[in-house]
Write a protein that binds this DNA or RNA. Structure first.
Lengths: 127, 127
DNA sequence: TTTAGCTAGTATAAAATTTATAGTAACTAT
DNA sequence: ATAGTTACTATAAATTTTATACTAGCTAAA
């Protein structure tokens, strides 16, 4: 277990989270404070467990702040810490790139697949 | 299977790859053209299968260009396409953030775990 | 002429992670 | 009493990732 050397990109990735949902949770929280149910509705196909795990991970890494209010039933709000807000530039560049380079590619590949009757090549695995 | 709506961030993430290795492969390729063996050596703990899968994925999405030379044994080089180069800004911001916010956190948490004898809280799962 | 070594991978099974599904507490509203 | 709310947890099943060994097609050394 030699974790000695770790570049800044690895550091960032490890803190943000290896999971595939972190960036999408962050995307939602950049819009402002949100509740569990709102996040679940906004993020397509995320399971409550995956959401809980992602939020806990981000919380432990001081990116997300969890605030529980003693209402009935309990109300829990999630927001970004300062460190979390600092991630905005990454997301911004990602959005820019996705907007410029992501156009129709998925649709094209899906069409390709349909026409030639081959496996969906877009993701590395099945969904 | 409704893939109808997809924000730019999702587009970017889907193209870059859900896998946990894509960003690290990209990091290496920003340094210039590299070969399979070089990438494997440079990226800690990546298995040849994971590397192959990641490279194929990036290739299919036109981010990485694979060039095979008919030498003996065969020589294969991987480099970034123009679209791949355009990802540089994302990586740059990630590196910046990681440099500023990633310092010692892992070490601190590991120490915390040792002292209080709790599970490693840094990753979402076990490694 | 066996032996080992190289590159760029595959094949397979085992391990780990992620998902789906159902269920929980502790209430409120009807 | 019944259904509905929120923020989750538990469990097993499905999927993904990893480890391990193996391949082709050569070269270079002993």
């Amino acid at each position: 277990m030699e974790n000695a050397v770790e570049c800044s990109i690895e550091k960032a990735l490890n803190i943000i989270g290896g999971g595939k949902w972190s960036f999408l949770v962050l995307r939602e929280l950049f819009e402002g404070t949100k509740r569990f149910g709102e996040l679940q509705k906004a993020i397509n196909n995320i399971s409550p467990k995956a959401l809980t795990d992602t939020l806990r991970h981000l919380e432990r890494n001081e990116i997300v702040i969890r605030t529980a209010y003693p209402t009935v039933p309990v109300t829990v709000e999630y927001s970004l810490s300062e460190k979390g807000h600092a991630l905005h530039k990454i997301l911004k560049e990602m959005k820019l790139w996705g907007g410029l380079n992501g156009r129709n590619i998925r649709g094209c590949l899906n069409s390709f697949c349909n026409i030639f009757n081959v496996n969906e090549p877009f993701f590395m695995g099945k969904r």
